[in-house]
């Protein structure tokens, strides 16, 4: 379970996260949606134990992220929006490194790597240096490193970025399977139909605050809109702005 209470993160004069609270239960996929710069990635980094919050509490399976970030990292599988992997290592070497750091028994590590590598079609790239792989393949490698230790909690920051349709579908199915196993999954994406398809609940974050939260149906009802995209645009006050910009563009052209 992920519990977030009145979380703040301030960078200089910029309040990136402004007192947000939410909970992701066991066996739940929670979608964190928001425009660029709304504070999604910062929140996720705090929950993954990478960034310290300025104020507030966050607990992962009952462990305080500020007090014991290493324990949190043992529990969590985190995929950042852009993979920053060692370019001069091969995926094989990277998986081995991660397996050793996560203290996975050799047989288990080999079994899990071979399973995910096959699932995401990375087999032929195992001995190729990461720096020579495409962005999509690097993203798959990054995903596999986050899944190796069978994490109880998954934090995926736009993890579908760069994935081909087949791999995206596989990841989607995997997430639904993980949900059945009782894992807590925090998921951010700009692909709203995808969020609509897999998320049990959604939190819309805007200017560092959660401005709406609920199931898809609850949000649609609240915003009086038919689909999630319209709900999102309305809540983030973008709908009228889009119309104005499009009109201005048309006139200019």
């Amino acid at each position: 379970m992920i519990e977030v209470h009145e979380l703040y993160k301030v960078f200089g004069n910029n309040i990136a996260v402004n007192g947000i609270s939410f909970t992701v239960h066991d066996g739940e996929i929670y979608g964190l949606l928001g425009p660029n710069g709304s504070g999604k990635s910062t929140t996720m980094k705090i929950l993954a134990g990478i960034l310290k919050p300025t104020k507030g509490r966050a607990l992962i399976e009952g462990v305080e992220v500020v007090k014991d970030p290493i324990k949190v990292k043992e529990i969590v599988g985190y995929v950042p929006e852009t993979p920053t992997l060692y370019e001069s290592l091969t995926p094989s070497e990277l998986f081995d490194l991660v397996g050793k750091i996560r203290k996975l028994p050799r047989e288990e590590l080999e079994e899990r790597v071979n399973y995910f590598v096959k699932a995401f079609g990375v087999e032929e790239y195992l001995d190729q240096f990461i720096g020579t792989l495409s962005f999509g393949t690097q993203q798959k490698v990054s995903l596999i490193t986050a899944l190796l230790h069978d994490p109880k909690v998954l934090i995926l920051d736009e993890a579908m970025n760069g994935l081909d349709p087949k791999s995206a579908r596989i990841l989607r199915e995997l997430l639904l399977e993980f949900k059945k196993e009782g894992k807590s999954i925090l998921f951010s994406t700009h692909v709203l139909p995808l969020a609509e398809m897999i998320c049990d609940r959604i939190g819309v974050i805007y200017q560092g605050k959660i401005i709406a939260e609920g199931t898809i149906e609850e949000l649609k009802e609240k915003a009086h809109e038919e689909n999630l995209e319209d709900v999102f645009l309305k809540l983030t006050e973008s709908k009228d702005e889009i119309l104005t910009v499009v009109q201005a563009l048309k006139e200019a052209l």
Binding site: S92, L109, N114
Partner: peptide, 8 residues
Amino acid sequence: AEGFKSSF
């Protein structure tokens, strides 16, 4: 590519 083998 050879299959993945974990090291000691």
